[in-house]
Write a protein that binds this DNA or RNA. Structure first.
Lengths: 104, 104
DNA sequence: ATTACGTTTCAATTAAATTTGATGCAAGTT
DNA sequence: AACTTGCATCAAATTTAATTGAAACGTAAT
């Protein structure tokens, strides 16, 4: 599921605006993890983690997959790329603006 | 002023997690603007805008410069690049992870 | 079936972010 | 000096987000 609506930009950034959620995605960067593994590593309650995972999932940044009674979460990279490209648009103007200031 | 502390990541993303602030930075992408110009274009009260500008400034995403009684805001691009590069780290793992899944 | 386990969901509470309107202040004007 | 303009700041009110603990759900084991 990749989100590309206009809201998805600040929905995505909102999901990244919290220390716990940043921790989660950095852990998931290496490999997919089930909820209980994340719970152990982060040292937070399951329902708290579940809330943050839901936030990340609704922003399209993570996916989940069930295997038996475990649910494994992993990154949804296209959404990261989308946000990265949004920021890259600003860098594109960096060159334009600085070259314009030379002609002043 | 470029912020590079560990907090700066989710501080920056938090600043980008609001529709008004996204509007502001997109307006500033073209050129620097004073507060009253932003106010007019966005159609919000001045003190509301001031709050959001402060949020953006504390996140290091914008700078301000005084000229007479006007205060001009502009983008602080290095901070955008920092956030972009943070996200790019995740894409770097994209290739690694997908190539690993091929060997399954 | 029954029980245990991993997870999500809900309702209640707490905490944090945002909005609003008033006030203050510095720079320019008259 | 008094006045206006452009902006920031403050405190109060409102809105939104996060935390908590209990309950509910599905899955697997006994």
């Amino acid at each position: 599921m990749q989100v590309t609506s206009p809201d998805s930009v600040f929905l995505g950034f909102h999901a990244l605006s919290d220390a716990i959620r940043i921790n989660v995605i950095e852990l998931l960067r290496d490999r997919e993890l089930c909820v209980c593994e994340l719970c152990d590593v982060l040292g937070i309650t399951q329902s708290k983690l579940s809330f943050h995972l839901k936030t990340l999932k609704e922003a399209g940044l993570v996916r989940s997959r069930q295997e038996g009674r475990w649910i494994y979460y992993s990154l949804n990279l296209p959404q990261f790329v989308m946000l990265e490209q949004y920021l890259a648009e600003f860098r594109r103007f960096s060159a334009i603006m600085s070259s314009r200031s030379c002609s002043d």
